[in-house]
Design a protein around this nucleic acid. Sequence first.
DNA 1: TTCCGACAGTGGGGTCGCAAT
DNA 2: ATTGCGACCCCACTATCGGAA
Length: 512
Amino acid sequence: MLLHRLARVSREVAATSARSRKTALLAELFRAAEPEDVPVVIPYLAGRLPQGRLGIGWKLLGTPVPPADEPSLTVREVDARLTAIGAVTGTGSQTARGRLLGALMAAATEEEQRFLVGLLTGEVRQGALDALAAEGLAAATGAAPADVRRAVMLAGSLQTVARALLAEGPSALGAFRLTVGRPVLPMLAHTASSVTSAVEKLGACAVEEKLDGIRVQVHRDGEVVRVYTRTLDDITDRLPEVSAAARELTQGRFVLDGEVIALDEEGRPRSFQETAGRVGSRVDVDRAAAAVPVSPVFFDVLSVDGRDLLDLPFAERHTELARLVPEPLRVRRVVVTGPEESARAEAFLAATLERGHEGVVVKSLDAPYSAGRRGASWLKVKPVHTLDLVVLAAEWGHGRRTGRLSNLHLGARGEDGSLVMLGKTFKGMTDTMLAWQTERLSELAVEEHRWGFTVRPELVVEIAYDGLQRSTRYPAGVTLRFARVLRYREDKRPEEADTVETLLAAHPGVAP
DNA sequence: TTCCGACAGTGGGGTCGCAAT
DNA sequence: ATTGCGACCCCACTATCGGAA
């Protein structure tokens, strides 16, 4: 298949807003693909590279190359050339990659170039990623969408499923089963505004600690232990403590779901930054482990002793978990019968926060284990802090926010009355707010930049955030975690905005 | 007809590690 | 030695489509 055809379909998919039309277009192309094209066409149309990341970013793509007049590249040739670029390593590799990339771009038409740039930077923006590609795949092969989704969860990737489906048809889906040693996509939680509302929604449920660490899926088959992240990367070698803990358990074959977290001597959680730094360390693992030991803490079991537990209700999976994993290696929890016990659930959240943890996850006792965001049977609840801050500058948005001032620079009042930047946010804005702030901030502009405007510090915004973390980037040495706009405070003047002093006082122990 | 679940998009900050400077 | 860049961790929220109620 020519890249030209694929790029054109991608553009058509981007041009329509109807999801049904998007899946129809994708299905048509999948049907036309030759079997050998499939491992490339499927991920490309899901907006991803089959190789994963290639170390090619905006920097390498920087210099534009004159496009070819006539399409000639096939998708397989593109894939082979990108694989070759990814394989270049060592001193001078950036230069060599740039040259190879330039040659590839020169062979591409303008439309093909646009598609390739999107693919390489992860910004395909066609309004169709894995989920709709799976839908299109189902349509192309006559398989039931739910069966395709389940196979994707079990395989951990769409490609594997696509290859089997297009080669053998819907009957191929039956072969995808939970296998120890092969990671499955993890079940994710939605957000609820309070424990009470979560319990009202779910009825009988478990309320569990939410630990602020790194999600892990741990597979053990005899002496072989593998540890995977949320995105199914293998991080076994970085976490010897987790392997050791898995080998201590009495059963020899299982798949567990949990979190790794660094705890201090008293068992209180260290900062997320410390846990993430430890888990990210690959080069000298022994040293990193000595400095910041981590503990696995489990909350679910997907398989034990060859039995697939995915479809069991959570209550029954937890019974299996409690049989396999000793209490200190499980998250704390309470079980409530329903809204009549929401006071107990709220008390558990308070106690969890008191112990220094992030919040709770409220889980339906009936729900099977199911990947992706489908179904809201897990609801997380975290406390939200708010501040009134001053807008210092605003950056132009991209994509659907092109032409709108989007990303706000936020400042708090310093000791001497100056304003101290604490971070940025683009979250929480409605289209109406975007339009309003574009106009208002343009009026307040004092300096124009390529990226946007510095403005007279007159507008006050109410900001919600999850907590404070250390920063080397911002002058106060701290920044807000997950800041988002709640509303503009036109009733407040900048002199009434919050101060750095009160912010630091509200989060003792964070500032350097 | 209205409601709501699922999806994509829009980026935030940090840390690590490699390559370039 | 320091800096720049990319990959991965953590993530909130809105708009929109289309099926469910």
